[in-house]
Design a protein around this nucleic acid. Structure first.
Length: 586
RNA sequence: GUUCCAGUAGCUCAGCUGGAUAGAGCAAUGCCCUUCUAAGGCAUCGGUCCGGGGUUCGAAUCCCUGCUGGGACACCA
């Protein structure tokens, strides 16, 4: 095992980041010993024993009835000079540190280029469906999760090399259309749209998004109390569904108006949609979709339904209603048509639905129907459900007076709190900084817990930003930038690692590829929010202990600046994945 | 009723799909600004990982069981 041997692996794994390279190397050693096994290098839980640990020997030993410690020794004997301080502890843990020059060569190579710190995965095409705002209704707190998680997953997918196509999939067909039109009729406005015999010109509708919101609320209240009104709402909804051109014309204008305000909120949340489509767009695909689905449909209680049960189901799987008993379409009809359309237009490998967990059973039904009727061929349909946002009482979030909290009011609320806490001497770009901090606060809190678990939404906690918060990260970014601004160039090489505080930062960064892999595997951002917080804390600790710009020894100062460059690079790019914009001062 | 998910520090949550002494933030207490942004750092306090069995070198994690909470179960989306 001479220099040649080491050189060999350097070349083969040139573009793998450090731990990935070492994992492959360990796997090749195991192969020499006759074992095919995936190796994971973890940060050591006992740092006095080494930087990293490998736990593979215990599981291998169990599988092949070997002695784990003997196996660990066999591996240890084969390790090259990159490994230092190799020791075997307990039942067969291998602990080790690395040659510092080896570590630094990787850090220097990657400190300016984030892409090389990230694993690139087998490429695939993914349609990601998130957002899901309803036309003519204000976005509420629940829409925030879909937007935040969806946008971050879109960016994460791109980062690892997927082709991501995002679609907002507006809820622009359904009862709210009947509500709105009924309200217009009641007010006696634009009556030509309601007159069968009218031959003249149809006026362009002039409402603001705010008008529409109020009109919906008013109609909704009335329809709940008033049977006749509800009947009218149903009738108009059904007419639109059947393709009544006058109604459709009017409704589409309302959707367009409403989309303006919806887009504005999504812009504030830094969401990007390649497609700003909705259920209306799926409408034209319904006949073609039905051609494929028809053979499986049968009548049940007046509706046309499809069985989606499978033999080894342990749970009840009710049939899916595809056409309602009044002949009108339903949510499922439009979703199936949308799947058909996406398959035809994009032929994706996967479609991800970032929608509330509570729709889990429904999506299971729709996906089964889509597979059964072969609406898709080689495409995986995935429901990436997220947990419910609850209030401090553990029940679904409501405002103090029991109403639904609109997303824009929530943003305003946080924004006001931020304003109170901002320093008075910040005058230039004050609004912009305030907005960035507001969105960072919301996003970080929203992405912090595991995607699928419910979480409690506490406005007080959200607007206070002590500790693990978006503003904490941005504050760290401000410090990093402020240092880099005060030096001439950015070309600093890490020449030596002087203190443990620096080493801790570097070791944390070596975990990044595994963090990204885990995130994309689980489609959850909490690993990244955690990593960011850990990295920021480690940096702040270093920052508080050592003074970078006044360091006298040249090599140490340059290494510090190399560290600052690297940490900034990593944090900047990870915040970008979360769709959090950074600031220069705060 | 059927089924899915959850139960970890006073509170809010992590815990890398079985690893070593279970971790963060908040709250509480005490320190640290003539130095790169104190929205920061350090220290202390805080645990029957819901209860009970089982699997094994090893369990918060896997299996069984009980308790508690929440969600979903046909014409809303």
């Amino acid at each position: 095992m001479g220099p040649y041997f080491i050189e060999f692996f350097y070349i083969v794994w040139e573009d793998l980041f450090m731990l990935k390279e070492l994992e492959s190397y360990l796997e090749s050693i195991l192969k020499e010993l006759g074992y095919e096994e995936i190796v994971t290098i973890l940060p050591s839980s006992k740092r006095d024993l080494g930087w990293y640990q490998v736990n593979i020997c215990m599981s291998l030993a169990k599988k092949y009835h070997q002695n784990p410690v003997e196996l660990a020794n066999l591996i240890k004997d084969k390790l090259d000079s990159r490994f230092t301080n190799v020791n075997i502890a307990g039942p067969g843990f291998i602990n080790f540190s690395l040659d510092t020059n080896y570590l630094m060569s990787f850090l220097n190579k990657n400190k300016d280029n984030f892409q090389t710190l990230v694993p690139s995965l087998e490429s695939k095409k993914v349609v990601i469906d998130f957002g899901g705002a309803n036309a003519a209704k204000a976005l509420h707190v629940g829409h925030m999760r879909s937007a935040n998680i969806g946008e971050a997953l879109r960016r994460l997918g791109k980062l690892v090399g997927y082709e991501m196509i995002s679609d907002v999939h507006l809820g622009d067909l359904g009862r709210q259309s009947g509500m709105l039109l009924s309200e217009i009729k009641k007010r006696g406005e634009y009556l030509e749209y309601f007159d069968d015999s009218y031959q003249g010109k149809y006026r362009k509708v002039e409402y603001t998004p705010t008008d529409l919101g109020k009109m919906y609320v008013s109609a909704n209240i009335d329809a709940k109390e008033n049977e006749e009104r509800m009947a009218e709402v149903r009738e108009i909804t059904a007419e639109i569904d059947k393709g009544n051109q006058r109604y459709l014309n009017l409704w589409k204008q309302l959707v367009a108006i409403s989309s303006i305000s919806i887009k504005k909120v999504y812009d504030e949340l830094n969401c990007h949609f390649d497609l700003f489509e909705g259920e209306l767009d799926a409408f034209k695909d319904i006949p073609k979709m039905l051609e494929k689905v028809n053979p499986y449909l049968y009548e049940s209680e007046g509706a046309m339904v499809m069985d989606v049960k499978e033999e080894n189901d342990t749970k009840e799987m009710p049939p899916l209603i595809v056409i309602k008993k009044d002949g009108a379409t339903i949510y499922a009809t439009r979703d199936l048509a949308t799947i058909y359309s996406r398959e035809e237009r994009f032929n994706p490998d996967e479609i991800w639905y970032v929608v509330d967990n509570r729709q889990g059973l429904y999506f299971e039904q729709v996906f089964r129907a889509a597979y059964k009727a072969q609406l898709v061929k080689n495409c995986n349909l995935l429901h990436l459900g997220f947990g419910t946002i609850n209030g401090t009482d553990g029940k679904p979030y409501k405002t103090r007076d029991g109403g639904v909290m609109e997303l824009s009011s929530l943003i305003d609320l946080i924004s006001q709190e931020i304003e109170k806490k901002m320093k008075d001497d910040i005058q230039t770009n004050r609004e912009e900084i305030k907005n960035a901090l507001t969105i960072a606060t919301l996003k970080y809190a929203d992405l912090m817990s595991f995607r699928a678990t419910d979480y409690i939404f506490d406005p007080i906690k959200f607007s206070s930003f002590d500790g693990k918060t978006g503003p904490y990260l941005l504050y760290t970014i401000v410090r990093l930038k402020s240092i880099l601004k005060k030096v001439e160039t950015k070309e600093y090489e890490i020449k030596k690692i002087t203190h443990d505080e620096e080493l801790d930062i570097y070791l944390k960064i070596t975990e990044l590829p595994n963090i990204i892999e885990r995130s994309i595997r689980d489609k959850s951002l909490n690993y990244i929010t955690d990593f960011l917080f850990d990295l920021a804390s480690l940096f702040n600790k270093f920052y508080n202990t050592y003074h970078i710009l006044t360091e006298k020894e040249k090599d140490i100062k340059e290494s510090y600046l190399g560290l600052v460059t690297l940490v900034y690079n990593v944090m900047h790019n990870l915040l970008d994945v979360l769709a959090i914009k950074e600031v220069d001062q705060m």
